[in-house]
Design a protein around this nucleic acid. Structure first.
Lengths: 110, 110
DNA sequence: TTATTATATTGCAATATTACGATTAAATAT
DNA sequence: ATATTTAATCGTAATATTGCAATATAATAA
């Protein structure tokens, strides 16, 4: 065990949880916020900015890249990361549909 | 290790990631969707509905309760669960601020 | 070529999560 | 009192995640 039973859930449920999982670590939230804040691309000072070791940041970047929220651009020895705006927008739509559900205000027991 | 360094992040970053973490499992997404769909409270048929063992569902409910997204109401031998609308709304605000960030469309390298 | 710089990968230890069988607890029914 | 029903808790196995030191890789500089 320790293995999520993905196959018993809908595509939508798996999509929502996959996206949310990536947001489920403060370092990844911090990275994304920083990429949004800087109006140009950030070229690797995330390690100083956030305060985790370089391999750790690299690992978090990998997960953000894997799900498509950021993309990197090689410039010399460094890599420029930025938000993938198109995918960010798609992701936002998926999450917003979930968050904007609303309850019929009747027959509630609590 | 294996331990998130909460102390180096802002309250907001930790709040966002805590909420997202709870959404980071399809079973919890499914539970929330079901509680939204049913106009009255569901009283424990979540086990049949979702297809995980009773202790597993109970564990997921506990996490949803811990963060305040649902609340339970004892009626006889069963328990009625429903969305905590006030907290859902608060949570939505926190996440929406994060999701609605936008990039100044300049100086981007990628 | 030989540094230097920047990032990725590997390997590993510590901790967390997921899932469920077995059991317990608490309320109702007989 | 004794079942029955429903949900929580305990214990445990399997897997995942987090974090970092060490190392590798890849591009540029000297």
């Amino acid at each position: 065990m320790g293995l999520t039973k993905t196959e018993i859930f809908t595509l939508e449920q798996n999509q929502i949880s996959s996206i949310a999982k990536v947001f489920g670590h403060p370092a990844r939230v911090a990275i994304l916020q920083h990429l949004f804040k800087i109006d140009s691309c950030i070229c690797g000072d995330l390690v100083d900015e956030i305060g985790l070791a370089q391999p750790t940041i690299s690992q978090h970047l990998k997960e953000l890249k894997k799900i498509g929220l950021i993309k990197g651009n090689i410039t010399g020895t460094s890599i420029c990361y930025c938000i993938d705006k198109e995918n960010w927008s798609k992701m936002k739509t998926i999450l917003t549909v979930f968050l904007d559900q609303d309850i019929i205000d009747s027959n509630n027991c609590c």
